[in-house]
Design a protein around this nucleic acid. Structure first.
Length: 359
DNA sequence: CGCACTGGGTCT
DNA sequence: AGACCCAGTGCG
């Protein structure tokens, strides 16, 4: 049994967030191909599931099942077209329940011939719900699940027999989207809504040696070879748009998207790719090629990445010697990796007052 | 020539 | 084995 309140506020089992709790339950403690994985969530978006798509696919190819119930609405942005497509492409059964009030539960788990496990949480199957929102979650072990008489199939069957307005989506319908269930889902990519106020934030990231090696390198040298990245935490999926682009060459699944990056310090506006290396080493990387050879950032300097809108970002390097360094660095509260890297978020309005510029 | 890929390393 | 860290290769 394990309880947590994310992000990294309180945990009885050294698990910082819901994403890692589901990692443990579904991937570490469950054998791919065995039984059925279950998801119930009122809200769902692409980045909520991006860590799991290769595993779901593998699990289903080996004979397992994935059953998903998500909320939908024609008037509210509950669950997205993109996550429904991704889950269907994994081979999952996807059910959309019309109207928010009917599904406000968030439960995750699995059933195998020998065990059933259950996570009950406030965290939705979304990027923020998985990591940065303050959400509680409890993982209930199979003995306790059995003792209380919980069974996933009973829960699903009872939900299906309530007479609710439920639409089962079909993978053969992805291109046409003729089923009315699709109209209960919103479009993450082509939507024009402004960011919520709580998403008008900047990421504060301490830079590692590999983050700045190519920035410091001279052109044409061996140290300048390869791609210039900032390595991020996969706990920051929610800071970026849906990572819906899959790799075209190569065999290891990656999920990425392009964002518009305004490199304030050098006056360059470029597209930058943010990539999750799902089948390689779980790297989560932000391409920052415009900084190559510029020498404007050194190890332990800060990158301040400001999200202006869905796809528009600004990047500022804050040197250790800059006056604003300490005021900004204190927002990088999440320790990640094993080399002292930290990241965190600060509201854009607070960035404005610290830097004395309008963001 | 830059960046999508590759595939290790290292610490927990 | 997970998750950042690092140093490239070779493709377009």
């Amino acid at each position: 049994m394990e309880f947590l309140l994310q992000p990294n506020v309180y945990s009885t089992g050294n698990t910082p967030n819901l994403l890692n709790l589901l990692d443990k339950m579904w991937i570490k403690d469950h054998n791919s191909g065995e039984g059925t994985l279950y998801i119930i969530s009122g809200f769902a978006n692409y980045n909520g599931g991006v860590r799991f798509y290769p595993y779901f696919t593998d699990h289903i190819h080996k004979g397992g099942n994935v059953k998903v119930i998500i909320g939908g609405s024609t008037s509210q942005r509950l669950s997205s077209i993109q996550i429904a497509e991704a889950l269907l492409q994994c081979g999952a059964d996807v059910y959309v329940v019309n109207r928010k009030r009917l599904v406000h539960a968030k439960c995750y788990g699995y059933k195998t011939p020998s065990a059933e496990e259950l996570v009950v949480t406030s965290g939705n199957f979304t990027g923020p719900g998985m990591s940065q929102n303050a959400e509680a979650a409890i993982r209930i072990d199979s003995n306790t699940v059995q003792t209380m008489g919980f069974e996933w199939e009973d829960l699903f069957n009872n939900m299906f027999s309530q007479g609710w307005d439920i639409y089962k989506l079909d993978s053969s319908d992805i291109s046409t989207k003729s089923d009315p269930g699709w109209r209960l889902l919103y479009d993450e990519i082509n939507s024009t809504v402004a960011l919520d106020e709580d998403q008008q934030v900047s990421m504060v990231l301490t830079l590692s040696g590999s983050d700045t090696a190519r920035i410091q390198a001279d052109p044409g040298t061996s140290a300048s070879k390869g791609t210039q990245y900032f390595w991020l935490s996969k706990g920051s999926f929610d800071f970026f748009p849906a990572l819906t682009e899959k790799n075209k060459r190569g065999t290891k699944n990656t999920y990425s998207t392009l964002i518009n990056m305004n490199y304030i310090d050098i006056g360059v506006i470029n597209q930058s790719r943010v990539t999750f290396e799902a089948d390689n080493n779980l790297d989560f990387r932000l391409g920052t090629g415009a900084l190559r050879n510029t020498k404007i950032a050194s190890k332990d300097d800060l990158a301040l990445i400001t999200r202006k809108s869905e796809f528009d970002y600004e990047l500022r390097i804050i040197k250790q010697t800059d006056a604003s360094y300490s005021a900004l660095a204190r927002y990088a509260v999440n320790y990640i990796g094993n080399y002292g890297k930290r990241f965190g978020y600060i509201s854009n309005s607070d960035v404005s007052s610290i830097l004395g510029v309008s963001i």
